[in-house]
Design a protein around this nucleic acid. Structure first.
Length: 287
DNA sequence: CCGTTAACCTGAGAGC
DNA sequence: TGCTCTCAGGTTAACG
């Protein structure tokens, strides 16, 4: 589901709600996420108090008043609900479950003090929750991540250095979390459109000027998307006022057959498959 | 090491 | 109404 901007919005939305709350009990309603939840490990969180939440690329790290870290990846459809007596808050990107009870995909429920709840809900179960130590940078999921798109290390020189030995398409490269961490299918499509670069281009053929555009528009789009509250797809209802609206700005993603948004272009957006993912571009504006 | 493909899981929406 | 098919914001094991 979520790429860097959405995970960042979840982090910001959740942090103030759970900070300093103590976990009373954890109910595992379905342990079969991407990795089976180790219940014996997870109950180490009983009695611990939530402190800060950190985001690393598409991962969330929950810190406590003990040296333990809860590592969460939302996969495609993972989301959090926060509930208090009066209200149920959803983090953005609510998958449409309008015809069914919306709690059938609750997987893990953290019962907090004051009858508050933090609920992890995940339709497709591609997300995961793991308990790790403070040396989280050595964790297998985090150790090999490339720089974040907003980092100063993601620039022309880095890009050129990394593509020397590679023969893949620019789309595949940017989806590779070891190259740059946090981008996904939507934002890579959008970045390449604004950069005027066709997703199928082999990285060896990229000109400096094009790489500069790609890094520049990466930062712009990711910043804009965070400021827009991320993108909300298949949304049914968001009741905490934090619904993401960046999807209104999509120029190519999901727009197969529609006219290119550039005013001087009359071509239609086409869709191809790259690395098993839908890829959208304008055949005229993207060279 | 690199690139590609399939697999993991569940539901929505289109077409018939 | 119901069946079948394709698609979905991600990651990674297995293979050449």
């Amino acid at each position: 589901m979520p790429e860097l901007p959405e995970v960042e919005v979840v982090k910001r939305s959740l942090e103030n709600k759970v900070r300093n709350l103590i976990i009373k009990t954890i109910k595992i309603k379905d342990s079969n996420l991407r990795y089976k939840i180790n219940k014996k490990k997870l109950i180490k969180l009983y009695g611990l108090k939530f402190k800060k939440i950190q985001r690393k690329s598409k991962f969330l790290l929950f810190f406590f008043d003990r040296p333990l870290v809860m590592l969460v990846h939302l996969g495609m459809t993972g989301k959090f609900f926060f509930e208090n007596k009066r209200k149920k808050y959803k983090t953005s990107f609510y998958y449409n479950l309008s015809k069914k009870k919306n709690n059938v995909h609750d997987r893990v429920v953290f019962l907090l003090e004051g009858k508050k709840k933090l609920i992890y809900n995940d339709v497709r179960k591609f997300g995961f929750i793991k308990l790790i130590g403070l040396n989280y940078n050595e964790n297998v999921h985090l150790a090999k991540l490339g720089p974040e798109p907003l980092s100063k290390f993601y620039n022309l020189n880095y890009f050129k250095k990394k593509i020397i030995k590679r023969v893949c398409s620019v789309k595949s490269l940017m989806m590779d979390q070891k190259f740059v961490s946090g981008l996904g299918n939507i934002y890579v499509n959008e970045i390449l459109f604004l950069s005027g670069v066709r997703p199928t281009r082999k990285v060896s053929t990229l000109k400096d000027k094009e790489i500069k555009k790609i890094t520049k528009f990466t930062k712009k789009i990711i910043n804009d998307a965070i400021n827009a509250g991320g993108s909300t797809i298949k949304n049914f209802s968001i009741d905490d006022g934090k619904k993401g609206v960046y999807q209104q700005k999509f120029k190519v993603y999901g727009r197969e057959g529609e006219r290119c948004s550039n005013t001087d272009c009359s071509k239609s957006i086409i869709r191809v498959i790259i690395a098993n993912r839908s890829t959208f571009y304008c055949p005229k504006c993207q060279k």
